[in-house]
């Protein structure tokens, strides 16, 4: 085996225990606090399996019993977008954060924090409803007549498919939003006697004024290039021209560098910028 020697060397460095430092918060509006946990090392671990052990033992490294750490996860293979958190300072999926790699970077401990730009529900769980709301805002769907059998859709060239497929892999994980300087946290507290529906309404109104985000801009471009989706292109461009639309982008390019699916978000943003300009000019001349 070619890699035999370095592997042996790596084996020797494997620790018995892993230290984890977790930024916890019991509920919205409550203070955040750090807590240390220690779990047994096993080969091929990821941050999910560390958190599973943390939940099973429910004890801090100094032995005091605590409630298990809350976090969100789903597929564990980086296609569902659930398990986003900030790991050693970088926003990413915790399933694909392999412990061996993290320890190579920082052998002392692994640091876990919730995402920065979304309201914390508890510990590492955040409320990302704003992210889905943005998909409604840009009408990210193909406006088909209905779901009866009407035969096949239009032919699509291979080039078009290869342009669109990467965009359609967006799993709404929120990494791009967390890394974006223009995307700032919107957190509303329930007011006395406010119903769940009223709170949701108020929240959506606030979301609709904030920056829509790179993921939604990219989805708008995806549907604007679909042969039937583009029938609603103007409506999507209107949404991108509104406050919190494309002009809010500061071109920091953080989004594309943190996207776990390497979606060409900045290309989408550039496309959207051009399309909005053309559309705005057209509107002036058509007046």
């Amino acid at each position: 085996m070619i890699a035999a020697t370095p592997e042996v060397a790596k084996e020797r460095r494997k620790p018995q225990k892993i230290n984890v430092r977790i930024l916890r918060q019991d509920a919205p509006g409550k203070p955040q606090y750090w807590e240390r946990h220690q779990v047994d090392y096993e080969p091929d671990m990821n941050v999910i399996s560390v958190l599973q052990k943390v939940a099973a033992q429910s004890k801090t490294s100094d032995g005091s019993a605590v409630a298990p750490v809350s976090w969100d996860c789903g597929c564990l293979e980086e296609v569902c977008g659930s398990c986003t958190m900030v790991i050693n300072g970088r926003v990413r999926q915790s399933c694909s954060a392999l412990v061996d790699r993290l320890l190579e970077q920082a052998p002392e401990e692994i640091e876990l924090r919730p995402m920065n730009k979304f309201p914390v529900v508890r510990d590492l769980m955040v409320d990302r409803s704003r992210l889905f709301r943005a998909l409604q805002r840009v009408k990210a769907w193909v406006p088909v007549d209905g779901y009866y059998d009407m035969g096949a859709g239009p032919k699509i060239s291979r080039d078009d498919q290869e342009r669109d497929y990467p965009l359609s892999q967006c799993m709404s994980c929120g990494c791009c939003l967390d890394a974006c300087p223009q995307f700032t946290k919107i957190e509303l507290q329930r007011q006395p006697n406010e119903s769940e529906d009223d709170l949701k309404k108020r929240r959506n109104e606030a979301y609709d004024e904030g920056f829509v985000g790179p993921h939604a801009i990219s989805q708008a471009m995806l549907f604007n290039s679909n042969p039937v989706g583009k029938n609603m292109a103007d409506e999507r461009l209107e949404a991108l021209m509104a406050p919190g639309g494309i002009q809010a982008c500061g071109n920091a390019q953080n989004c594309v560098s943190v996207c776990p699916k390497q979606i060409p978000l900045t290309t989408s943003i550039a496309r959207a910028g051009r399309a909005v300009t053309v559309y705005a000019l057209k509107k002036i001349f058509d007046r």
């Binding site: 769907w141 193909v142 088909v144 779901y147 059998d149 009407m150 035969g151 096949a152 859709g153 032919k155 699509i156 060239s157 291979r158 498919q161 669109d164 497929y165 359609s168 549907f223 679909n226 039937v228 989706g229």
Partner: peptide, 22 residues
């Protein structure tokens, strides 16, 4: 076949042949 036609109309980015078929 009808299910695939519907999914095609809904915009699923199925891989394509050089001529543009699924």
């Amino acid at each position: 076949p009808k299910v695939i036609d519907l999914m095609d109309r809904l915009g699923v980015t199925f891989n394509r042949t050089p001529e543009g078929f699924i």
